[in-house]
Simulated scan of single mutants.
Amino acid sequence: MKQYAPLALYLVFSNTVFAAPLRLHNRLVFTRGEKLLHSEMVWTMNAEGGEQKRVWRVPSGYGQFGGFSSDGKSALSFNPYNIYLHDLQTKRIQHVLVWSGGWSPYISRPLFSPDGQQILCEVGNFNQNTSYSEVLRLQVGKSYSVLNGLNAQKLLPVGESVPPKNLWSEPCWSADGKRIVVVGGPSYSLIRSASNQANAQAEIWTMNTDGTAARQITRNPAWDLQPTLSPNGKQIAFVRRVAIDQSDVDEYASNLWIIDSTNGTEKQLTFFPETYYEMLAKNIYAQVSTPLFSPNGAMLAFEQATGQRWGKEQKILRGIYRIGINGKTTKRLSDGDLVQWIP
Rank of each mutant, 00 (worst) to 15 (best):
L111R: 12
R109E: 12
S100W: 12
N151D: 10
W103S: 15
S100D: 14
V135K: 09
R137A: 04
L120Y: 08
L155N: 01
A152I: 02
K154T: 14
L147H: 02
S131Y: 02
T130D: 09
Y144C: 04
D115K: 08
G141P: 13
L138Y: 01
G141W: 05
G124Y: 02
N151L: 07
L136S: 04
Y132N: 03
D115N: 09
V123Q: 07
D115R: 07
N129M: 10
R137D: 04
P114V: 14
P110N: 08
S108M: 09
V98P: 08
Q118E: 15
G102F: 05
T130M: 00
I107H: 08
P114L: 10
G102D: 04
P105L: 06
V123L: 10
G124R: 03
L111E: 13
L147T: 02
F126A: 02
E122H: 06
F112L: 10
V140C: 05
W99Q: 00
W99V: 04
L150C: 09
N125Y: 07
S131L: 01
Q118W: 14
N127P: 12
S104I: 13
Q139E: 15
P105R: 02
S133E: 11
V98F: 09
N125H: 08
K154H: 12
G101R: 00
L147G: 04
Y132I: 03
L138W: 03
P114T: 15
Y106G: 07
G116L: 01
W103Y: 13
N151M: 03
T130I: 06
L147C: 02
L155S: 05
G116Y: 01
A152W: 00
G116H: 00
L138Q: 00
I119N: 07
L120R: 07
D115G: 06
G124L: 03
L155H: 05
G124C: 03
G124S: 04
L136T: 04
N125G: 12
L136V: 05
Q153P: 05
K142M: 07
S131H: 01
S113N: 03
L150A: 09
Q153Y: 06
V123H: 06
K142A: 10
S145F: 08
S108I: 03
F112Q: 07
N148S: 15
